[in-house]
Design a protein around this nucleic acid. Structure first.
Lengths: 225, 225
DNA sequence: CCCGGCGTTTACGCGTTCTTGAGGCCGGGG
DNA sequence: CCCCGGCCTCAAGAACGCGTAAACGCCGGG
């Protein structure tokens, strides 16, 4: 069954969508603000997200960015703003479609079908990267090795996540430091050595001769599959 | 370059789109009716199609069906009809987006970017430069020879990268030194000799008679494909 | 309050890479 | 013919970057 995550702070909108979508055989999840939306998305892995931009806590564009960090789930934006700058902003942030309120239910459903169709055409599979030694589940933020879950600290996970989003590709030290520690620490390459040593102990079969967490001296690191 | 097929029977719309798209670096193809649109699409394999529904010969929905018969190219529909039944029909026929005329150019361009983004995400291949002896993967920063990966030092990679970004073209010594060693060393042409010798040992079949890393005496070097 | 997990920081040994200089080769011009 | 500039090769010391271990301070939970 196709699952839809509806994110809106107006209860009547959520209710209307829930009724219509359920009636058509969709599995409906809901959230009323950006934070919980991101949480629900991670938990429930919806096939498509309907997102209102006017949320109480986070800016809608942030929510889009948060989702796009780990998934390519189609996102249909709902908004009362009709000006093109809002549309451009949302679409360029990674949204797939933009519908202005008030909207026709028929049209929204058609756009939903179009989005889902594309989504399955892309032929999903969860965002999972696997090597011969361990498996990285980007959505669940978990790493498994021999079926057993390996506990990673937040910093360790940050590194693995960046690498797993660029499987096989070289990631520069600067990029790793920037994305994990922030722009203030792009020169603390020592952090990388310390943390890669830890990660290798946790994830590699032979930490002294890593096969997947590869150092490219002077350039960066690479997750070899 | 991204290519766009614009299909519309109103010349002024086609002209306006051609101007705007060309200015933004798109490669623009055009057609004024459904039949030729299908022909051009088969010939030119555009990355995205902008399709007006009110064509003189075939119904727009037929055109969508004709395209969907053999491809999943993103289709953005343009139409003066604002009623939801038209939108539903087009979207269910396989269109990816539906924009009503008159439309804002900014918005159309944003929707175009969104459509193209999805399209390329589906296929995605790294930019690769290959010679008969070795393959340079710019994104992954890898060089392979006979399928086996060749390890390059940062300086060696810097040289290969500059050359690979200018395949077949002559790159002056000054430019190489500038990009790899920085503006302070533009006269150290000895560096180039040392490093090209190393690169030839690593990449050429016969380092003494290079076929790809070519010296142009007094001028610079060239990556011969 | 104590303890453990986590992030940060310092120190040191080691292998690799960069730089530098010397010498030989080759072709064009005097 | 010889000279000379540009190029290739080789080798050795210096400089650099990496891995590892260990210690410190912070914080939250038991």
């Amino acid at each position: 069954m196709t699952s839809v995550l509806v994110v809106d702070d107006e209860p009547q909108i959520v209710r209307a969508l829930r009724i219509n979508l359920s009636a058509r055989g969709y599995d409906v999840m809901t959230a009323y603000d950006g934070k919980s939306a991101l949480g629900v998305a991670v938990e429930g892995k919806p096939d498509v997200v309907v997102l209102d931009l006017g949320l109480p806590d986070i800016d809608g564009v942030e929510v889009i960015a948060g989702l796009r960090g780990w998934s390519t789930i189609p996102i249909i934006v709902l908004s009362a703003r009709t000006d093109s700058s809002a549309k451009v902003e949302a679409l360029d942030a990674g949204a797939d479609d933009y519908v202005t309120k008030p909207f026709g239910m028929d049209e929204l459903l058609a756009r939903l079908r179009a989005a889902v169709r594309r989504g399955v055409a892309r032929e999903a599979g969860d965002p999972v990267v696997e090597t011969s030694s361990f498996v990285v589940d980007l959505a669940a933020k978990k790493v498994r090795r021999d079926g057993r879950e390996v506990h990673l600290t937040p910093t360790e996970w940050g590194l693995v996540e960046v690498l797993a989003r660029n499987p096989g590709r070289l990631v520069s030290q600067k990029q790793l430091l920037q994305e994990v520690w922030g722009p203030m620490h792009v020169n603390e390459s020592q952090y990388l050595r310390v943390y890669f040593a830890q990660l290798r102990r946790k994830l590699e079969d032979d930490a002294a001769h890593p096969r997947h967490l590869i150092t490219e001296p002077g350039m960066g690191y690479r997750l070899e599959l």
